[in-house]
Amino acid sequence: MTKRMAGQVGARSDGKTHYRTSPLPLAAALVMIAVTCALGNWQLNRAHDKEARAARLQALSAQPPVVLGTAPLPQVVTDRTVRVTGRFDTARTVLLDNRPHGNGSSPGDSRAGFLVLTPLRISAASPAPAGAAGAMQAVLVLRGWLPRDAQDRTRIAPFPTPEGEVTIEGTALAAVPRVYSLGQDAAGSKIRQNLDLAAYAAETGLALHPLVLEQRSDSGDGLARDWAPADLGADRHYGYAFQWFGLAALTVVLVVVLGWRRARRVAAP
């Protein structure tokens, strides 16, 4: 008796060949179909999430800006437009390395660079919600993008920081955008890979609002602020989903065709 991948061949009592089908190929095909369909759904969900956030941002942009003061905000303001008045704490500026121009919004521009983060010490006279306890000294501002020196990453191109009191307007983010990092950044270093808001507050001793302000208004510092749109990459996720569902469909076709051919061999006289 000779074993084959799809089954085993044997002789019947009437002298005709018959096939004893192994369930393993069918089980493997079913697993493949389930996995590829799950991956396709995952990619669809990612695309839908990005489109939903883009629609949410568009709806929130029609609302008046939230004015940030020294009192904690009584509600979550993520994705809302926020306005704040204060002075930049230049000495505590942090540069986040390995950030492409536009954070992926400019496919033709692959220049490496930094994201510039500087805390803004909020003016005591800034309006704040009534009845809120405690005091927030500052808010971390994601000011913009700065190109990096190709030969020496520590050679930072000069960029001006506004002096005196300024009013900044931007979008509230829940956290600082992150990239994959192999190690931990040294506390106090100016150039880093990532920055955790709570850890940075403990490091600097500043009472920071639990949000990051992605600056939209111009402050004359020369930094690029062509931020990536919220739905960036949705089309790519749809493409990936099509590929996974296509692979699942191909597997179904192969199972049907091979099963039909096997059935014809068994039925043959």
Rank of each mutant, 00 (worst) to 15 (best):
A234F: 04
W145V: 06
V166Q: 06
R83G: 11
T85P: 02
T85I: 03
V35K: 07
S217N: 07
V253M: 04
L115M: 08
T81W: 10
S189Y: 06
A133I: 01
R92M: 04
R111K: 12
T118Y: 05
A187D: 11
P107D: 13
R262P: 05
R216Q: 13
T90A: 15
S105Y: 06
A133F: 01
A202E: 08
L258M: 02
S126T: 08
P25S: 07
P160K: 06
C37N: 13
T93A: 04
N194Y: 09
Y238P: 11
H48N: 12
A91V: 07
Q75F: 09
G188H: 09
Q151A: 05
V256C: 11
A138C: 02
R225D: 08
L142R: 13
L24D: 11
L140Q: 06
A199F: 09
L117A: 06
G183P: 15
E51V: 13
L213M: 04
K16C: 13
A199W: 09
L30F: 05
Q75L: 10
G239K: 13
A172E: 00
G259H: 00
I156H: 04
P25Q: 01
G10V: 00
L247W: 13
F114D: 12
Q75V: 08
P127K: 00
Q243S: 08
V266D: 04
A47E: 05
L24M: 03
S105M: 05
A29D: 07
D196F: 00
A52S: 07
Y180T: 06
G104H: 01
E203T: 10
V66W: 15
D196T: 01
A52G: 13
V139K: 01
G10I: 00
E165D: 02
V84E: 03
W145E: 10
A130T: 13
S123P: 06
Q137N: 14
A34G: 13
V256D: 06
D149I: 02
P158D: 15
A47L: 13
L24S: 11
R192W: 04
R143W: 04
A150L: 01
Y240L: 07
R20S: 14
Y200L: 00
G113R: 13
G233D: 10
V141Y: 01
L57M: 15
R12P: 12
A249N: 08
A133D: 07
S217G: 13
R99K: 14
G131L: 12
A29Q: 14
S181Q: 01
D14W: 09
T161W: 05
A132M: 08
R92V: 08
V116W: 04
W42R: 02
V253A: 02
P64L: 14
G102I: 08
A59M: 10
D149Y: 02
Q63G: 03
A38G: 05
E203V: 08
S61A: 03
D218H: 14
P127Y: 01
A172P: 02
G170V: 08
A198D: 10
V35I: 11
Q193I: 12
H237E: 08
V166E: 02
V256Q: 04
A135Y: 00
G134A: 15
L195Y: 14
R261C: 15
V257K: 11
M32K: 04
F159N: 07
F159I: 05
R4T: 15
R178F: 08
R56K: 12
A132V: 03
F242R: 07
V84H: 05
